[in-house]
Structure formats: structure tokens, C-alpha cells
Design a protein around this nucleic acid. Structure first.
Length: 416
RNA sequence: GGGGAGUUGGCAGAGCGGUCAAAUGCGGCGGACUGUAAAUCCGUUGGGGCAACCCACCUAGGUUCGAAUCCUAGACUCCCCA
């Protein structure tokens, strides 16, 4: 792959490591050089917030807009109504329309931090595939769209084949999912003249299907581009830390905790992440990522600041950094720590320390909190907690108290 | 429509009347070492409760001194045949 791109967007993608594959480098590059191109990425509407796994693609859209093009965020409002069956382990309850729309609202808030939406030529737009899926007529869909799909070919897709090989059941619904996704591309091309779909490399098959379908039905030439599936350098899936997902919505994960996630990046990933998740010049990223030993911590702080600034703003990033410095370097308390505020009603005659740890989000269950105490991992105002039966009452909360789980996770509890 | 297999902790997967809160692995958490990194090592790991104690192997009944294990019914999942 020694293609030398003309367009700024392609050049950024390649330089910064966003590019996994492209259906037609030359064709896409030409199109991008000849004017404003709309491109979309699809998102499920199943969760209330986007998480860090989505961030890579959001950055792609951001660059896309920065280099003069029109990003489209497609919400799977219609497909979500059917329920994506690919993770059918625990049959999740189907979401109703209100829940789906609430999810979409939550996500839009996040997108708005990265993209500017509006009516201008290169302003981003948000679509919902319910727009064209809701009123589909089965028979005409079969006749117009279904005839372009060869079951023989669909069976050869890796996602399908592996299921069949393992003799796992594959429902007809799930089998149809790829058709609906292809149809999305067709409709977005037809309605919004969208020329490009992007996505993770696991979406390659779906993207190609959409391209083929659009060519057959409309005779339009359109393109696909995929980003690598990111794993951390030790091979784990990106985006998990201390048990919880790294959400992008501030009310689900505080800016401080978000900042901490990036601060704790592995050495080997630092340079790569700088290129992917920040907008610092590539040379700077390379320089920072190449720092040795403990010096690379400075690079990680820059990474955390940059990424947090994009999502939550510069003030939030600064506050997170200040708090981190306070907590880790001075062993003190920063005001940006996750804070649990209790009313006197909540408190009643007193609440056990175990409950408090759970309420503060430092443990998932009372048993876990107790375990933490037993393992000497819990601290109260930096004093090791030894008594699992300790009761906290209003008097003990006259001053806010600092709870710690291990060395890295801290929270404040105050009376409010 | 008929026949068969199955449902165990976050996941994978043992157990098939007592010694089972339940092997093992993964994951998670804590500790040591460091640089708030990685690797490694050690420990820990169902839930509720301040506690005593209680609830827990799909659900509801039953048999038994005793059930995750046996019986009955139901729900769900998968496979094969039509």
C-alpha cells in the first residue's frame, strides 16, 4: 500500500494510522479532491452513551469535517427496533421507541463536541435509519432489494460462515441484518448523495454489500473505508479499565476518570494514541511517544489533556490534571474527584462503611467492599480501613471524607 | 408436527444424592515491584445485612434425614427429521 494521496483527508488518515482498508483508493481520493463529499458512519442506538470504542471513528469524522467534507452520523434507530441479534447470549429486551430516541439524544450530545452540525455544505447531519426502514413494505423490498443478494454469497461471509461452522444457530433476522445495512447505504446515497461509508474493519463486509447494492440499483460508484480494530499493545480490546466501560457521556463517567484512563495508557500505545486521538502534529506525537522510561509520563499527561479537552473542554481537562496532581503527588484531595453527596435523610442514623464504598462507586457490591477492606485496599482519609463494621454518621461527615480503593481510585463523600 | 440435547457464578466449563458457594481457566479486584506504564509474583473473587444470619446451581412443586444432583409440570435455548 504505497498509494500517495492527493486529498488532505486521505493523507491524514494514512499518516496518523486510521486506515485499515479502502475499496478504491484512487477513486475515493479523486472524489475527495473534487469537492465536498458526504460520508457516514453508522451507530447502534442500543446504549445510552457512546464509549471509547466509538472514539476512533468519531475522530475520523472530525478529520473528515476539518478537511472540508460533510460527516453524517447515522443512528440505527430502525434497526435497533428489531434488536441486533449478534450478541444473543443474554436476550436483551427490545427497546421501545422512546428509549431509542433517548439513547440517540444522549449520543448526539457527544457528537456535538466533535462535529459541528448545521445546514452548511460541510456541516454534519444526523440521520436515523428509521426514516426509511420503518415504512418498508416487505414484498416490494424483497422484489427491489432482495433480488440483488445471493444467498450463496452471503453464506460465504465470515460472520455467517463461522456461525454455521460451529453449528451455532443463525436466525433469519440476523441473516437479514446485513441486507438492511447495505440498504442503509443505498438510501443515504439516494437521499443525501453520500459517497462514502466508513467503519471499523469488522464492518468491511457490510460496507462492500452496500456498495454493490448501490451500484446495482442506482448505478452509482461509491466507496468504503475502514479503520483498524484497535487493541492495546498487549492484545486486549480497547476501552476497558477498572471493570467499567469508558463512557463518553460526562454523567456516566466523570471527566476526571476519563482523564485517568488516558493517563494510564501503556507506554507502547502512547505514540499511537496521540496520533489517533489528538490533533497534535504527527511529528510531535512521534517525539512524545518515543520518550523513554518515566519521561513518557509527560507524554501521557499531554495525551490525557488533549483527549479530555476535545470531549469535555479545556477547563475540565485542567481540573482533572490538577486533581490528579493533588491526589497522586501530594496524597491530598482534589476537588475534581468523583463526589458522593449524601443528604441527612440518606444518612439516617448512620451508614456502614461498606455501603458507603459501594455508593461512592468504588465497589460493585457490599461483598466487594468488604473484600477490599479485608485486603487492606480500602482507605478512609488515607488511613487504612480495618473495621468492616464501621458506621459513618453525620458527625463523622462534618468534614468531607476521602475514600480510596487501592492506590488509584478515590472518591469524596460529603454531606449536602 | 415428530425425535433428541441442554439451561451451573461476569464469561467459558466441571460436578450428577451428603464432604458443594460449587473444580479449573479467563476476566475482575487488592498487594509487592515500578514510573498512576508493561511484564512478573502473591492474594482474592456469588448476592443481601453493622452483625447474628439469610438468599442462591432456569421457574414452581415433589421425593428424601439430606438435592445443583432424583421425580413432575412449566419457561427458554440448541440440534436432527418432516
Amino acid at each position: 500500500m504505497t498509494y500517495h494521496p492527493k486529498s488532505e483527508f486521505m493523507s491524514v488518515m494514512m499518516k496518523r494510522g486510521f486506515l485499515a482498508d479502502c475499496t478504491d483508493y484512487q477513486g475515493l481520493d479523486d472524489a475527495l479532491s473534487n469537492g465536498v463529499v458526504p460520508a457516514y458512519i453508522g451507530y447502534d442506538a442500543t446504549a445510552k452513551s457512546l464509549h471509547i470504542g466509538h472514539l476512533l471513528n468519531i475522530m475520523v469524522l472530525r478529520w473528515f469535517q476539518k478537511t472540508g467534507h460533510k460527516p453524517i452520523t447515522l443512528m440505527g434507530g430502525g434497526t435497533t427496533k428489531v434488536g441486533d441479534p449478534s450478541f444473543r447470549a443474554d436476550e436483551r429486551p427490545l427497546l421501545d421507541e422512546a428509549a431509542i430516541n433517548a439513547n440517540i439524544d444522549g449520543m448526539q450530545k457527544v457528537f456535538a463536541n466533535y462535529l459541528s452540525y448545521g445546514d452548511g455544505a460541510s456541516d454534519a447531519i444526523m440521520l436515523n435509519n428509521a426514516e426509511w426502514l420503518d415504512d418498508l413494505n416487505y414484498l416490494s423490498f424483497l422484489r427491489d432489494i432482495g433480488r440483488h443478494f445471493s444467498v450463496n454469497r452471503m453464506l460465504s461471509f465470515e460472520s455467517v460462515k463461522s456461525r454455521l461452522d460451529r453449528e451455532q444457530s443463525l436466525s433469519f433476522l440476523e441473516f437479514n441484518y446485513m441486507i438492511l445495512q447495505a440498504y442503509d447505504f443505498l438510501e443515504i446515497n439516494r437521499r443525501y448523495n453520500c459517497l462514502l461509508q466508513m467503519g471499523g474493519s469488522d464492518q468491511w463486509g457490510n460496507i462492500v454489500n452496500g456498495i454493490d447494492l448501490t451500484r446495482r440499483v442506482l448505478d452509482h460508484e461509491i466507496y468504503g473505508l475502514t479503520t483498524p480494530l484497535l487493541t492495546t499493545s498487549d492484545g486486549k480490546k480497547m476501552g476497558k479499565s477498572q471493570g467499567g466501560a469508558i463512557w463518553l457521556n460526562g454523567d456516566m463517567l466523570s471527566p476526571y476518570e476519563f482523564w485517568q484512563f488516558w493517563r494510564n495508557t501503556t507506554d507502547a500505545d502512547t505514540g499511537r494514541f496521540l496520533k489517533l486521538y489528538t490533533e497534535l502534529p504527527v511529528e510531535e506525537c512521534n517525539r512524545l511517544g518515543a520518550l523513554e522510561g518515566s519521561e513518557i509520563n509527560a507524554a501521557k499527561i499531554i495525551l490525557a489533556n488533549e483527549v479530555t479537552t476535545l470531549l469535555h473542554g479545556a477547563d475540565a481537562a485542567k481540573a482533572a490534571e490538577a486533581t490528579a496532581r493533588e491526589v497522586f503527588e501530594k496524597g491530598g484531595v482534589g476537588d475534581d474527584l468523583p463526589t458522593l453527596t449524601l443528604s441527612t435523610d440518606d444518612l439516617g442514623d448512620g451508614i456502614s462503611i461498606g455501603q458507603l464504598i459501594v455508593r461512592a462507586g468504588l465497589a460493585g457490591s457490599g461483598k466487594e467492599a468488604k473484600r477490599l477492606i479485608a485486603e487492606n485496599g480500602a482507605k478512609l482519609n488515607d488511613e487504612p480501613l480495618t473495621n468492616p463494621g464501621l458506621m459513618i454518621d453525620a458527625a463523622a461527615l462534618a468534614q468531607p471524607i476521602k475514600l480510596s480503593a487501592g492506590k488509584k481510585r478515590h472518591a469524596l463523600v460529603q454531606l449536602g
